[in-house]
Nucleic acid binder design. Structure first.
Lengths: 142, 142
DNA sequence: TTCTTGACTTAGAATCATTCTAATTTTAAA
DNA sequence: TTTAAAATTAGAATGATTCTAAGTCAAGAA
């Protein structure tokens, strides 16, 4: 979904589109690197010197609850966020700590609404390993 | 894999089977509820009053690195651990914070060693939603 | 426009989870 | 036994997230 479309959805009764919320969503739109909260905060702080970390957290929670962004819990102890909400897999390299998007066809859960009587709201298919770049680095060092 | 089998594997050169490590592994064997670090610590503290949280963390890391247990990062901000290392899905209920085991047949990643040039070491297929019990509670309150 | 009310933002404190440190204890091997 | 390496311990330090209370802003009513 485009940025304008998402922003428009926020400007309805019950929710306010503030410059901070605009800035966070725009940052995620432009940075598809699955940034951490700290990265988002640090970058926005340059533009908006008074922006608070609490606002970053509140806004990310707000955007998540409106289904506009996804939370990623692939790395222990810290949150990352993703502008893309269409179902896709994430690959985490435990060497360089990068998160890669991966497309996997034929997931049997893709269209399911329920499993074992539980209501499915979101899929978080994570893959852990060593990424192609780090594999190459290792080869080079031989 | 049985508990004895896992314990035996630890008693080889390069690794020591201490009573603390024994206790942590045994706790996970007996408690398949995907406990948090705090839960493990709190419970073991009753048996071994001097056991340290650092030991819990060290031991969990040690057992994980030996492939005997799995780390679960399904809930933001805290680690959980699983005695079962055979591939299976986890369902997290964001109402009651329980983690359920779920079997999903036909995962296209099941046998894959590589994807997009990245080396796959571990799959963490997480599902988020509302569990059957919490759905029932909601119905009851109507 | 001005007023009012509720929603949002802010800075910093508080909390919670995890890691680090340095001292002590335990273990395995000589 | 003795010794050296490995493991454990208590508590401090760090890092991430949440909370708090005060101040600011925005949208609708008068």
């Amino acid at each position: 979904m485009g940025l304008k479309e998402k922003l428009a959805g926020l400007n309805k009764k019950g929710s306010t589109l503030t410059i901070q919320r605009n800035a966070v969503l725009e940052y995620l739109y432009e940075n598809r690197t699955h940034p951490t909260v700290e990265e988002i905060y640090h970058s926005l702080k340059e533009k908006f010197s008074t922006i608070s970390k609490a606002t970053i957290y509140n806004t990310l929670e707000f955007l998540k609850n409106h289904g506009l962004i996804h939370e990623i819990t692939i790395e222990k102890g810290k949150l990352r966020f993703d502008y893309e909400v269409k179902p896709h897999h994430h690959f985490f390299c435990h060497k360089c700590k990068h998160v890669y998007d991966v497309d996997v066809e034929g997931c049997p859960l893709a269209e399911k609404k329920m499993i074992d009587g539980h209501k499915i709201e979101e899929l978080r298919p994570y893959i852990i390993g060593i990424c192609s770049k780090c594999l190459q680095k290792k080869k080079d060092s031989w």
